[in-house]
Simulated scan of single mutants.
Amino acid sequence: MRSATLHGPKEMRVTVSIVSHGHGQMIIPLIEKLLDFPEIGTVIITHNIPEVISLPESPRVIRRWNSAPKGFGHNHNDAFCLCVDDFFCVMNPDIDFVENPFSALVTELVASGSAMIAPKVVDSTGCVEDSARHFPTILGIVKKVLGISDGRHMELSQMNPFHPECVAGMFMLFKYDGYRKLNGFDTRYFLYYEDIDICARIWKAGASVLLLTPVVVIHDAQRKSHKSFKFLRWHISSMLLFFRLHMWRLPQVATAYRSKNNW
């Protein structure tokens, strides 16, 4: 990953990184809402494939175009090189908001000493998604295939704040220095499991992952790995890489853990 910019982070502002895979008009209302939130310093849009779209004109919007598609982690790491704010938020283009989530998330992230925080994620019908998960294991994969369990934390509705083992990459808010210490996402993952990997590395570094359950965002999930052989192949390849890197070495995480390592 390239080094950060020469400018120091601005006080209590968030840079948001969004990668468009031809999402087109979907990202326009998302950008407009983000620009209305006072905590947002910069919105970085990475066009991972060619598309023609007019975005809201603002000095706070930065656009990047890839000459060839890059992986999830690679795109967000490149965007981080343009971050001049205190916080860096990785966000899917199909996120929507009930209300501004950033004030509460930033406040809790600073107070907790955690390295990364996420909101509770619901679908368009209001059902809670499986964004807070246990680390994957061979037994857990078998249970998922058999339809016994999808690996989600069942304690999500009872605890606040809540320390899941890992959270999904559709919305992750990092401290600038925390993301830099981690060297961002591991770019050996092209797609899938890079979010689980970075959570594992956070816990191994002595920091924590936090989910603020009263803060809610909406996600229109696109489970493409269930529909396309290409995405399924990436999913399986990333899963095998994760097991090779972390199998038998996953951190033991207590859900009530409160980080003493202030990141």
Score class of each variant (00 low, 15 high):
1 M>F: 12
5 T>E: 03
16 V>N: 07
19 V>Y: 04
19 V>S: 12
20 S>I: 05
22 G>W: 08
23 H>P: 01
32 E>G: 11
37 F>L: 06
38 P>N: 09
41 G>W: 01
45 I>W: 01
47 H>I: 00
53 I>M: 10
55 L>C: 06
55 L>V: 13
57 E>L: 10
61 V>W: 03
63 R>M: 10
64 R>I: 15
66 N>Y: 03
67 S>V: 02
67 S>E: 14
67 S>F: 08
67 S>I: 02
68 A>W: 04
68 A>G: 01
69 P>I: 00
70 K>M: 12
72 F>E: 00
73 G>P: 04
73 G>Q: 01
74 H>N: 03
76 H>D: 03
77 N>H: 07
82 L>V: 01
84 V>R: 02
84 V>W: 00
86 D>H: 00
86 D>T: 00
95 I>K: 04
99 E>L: 10
100 N>L: 02
109 L>A: 03
115 A>M: 13
134 H>E: 15
137 T>D: 11
143 K>I: 13
143 K>N: 12
144 K>M: 13
151 G>M: 06
155 E>M: 07
155 E>C: 03
157 S>M: 09
158 Q>T: 11
159 M>K: 15
164 P>S: 06
164 P>D: 10
167 V>Y: 11
169 G>R: 01
172 M>L: 15
173 L>I: 04
173 L>F: 10
179 Y>A: 03
179 Y>G: 00
180 R>G: 01
180 R>P: 00
189 Y>S: 01
191 L>E: 05
193 Y>S: 05
193 Y>F: 14
194 E>H: 02
194 E>C: 08
196 I>Q: 09
202 I>R: 04
204 K>N: 14
206 G>T: 05
215 V>Y: 12
216 V>P: 12
218 I>K: 07
220 D>K: 14
222 Q>C: 04
224 K>M: 13
225 S>I: 04
231 F>T: 03
232 L>M: 15
233 R>W: 14
237 S>M: 15
243 F>D: 05
248 W>M: 13
249 R>W: 04
249 R>V: 02
249 R>Y: 05
252 Q>I: 08
255 T>D: 11
261 N>W: 00
261 N>C: 07
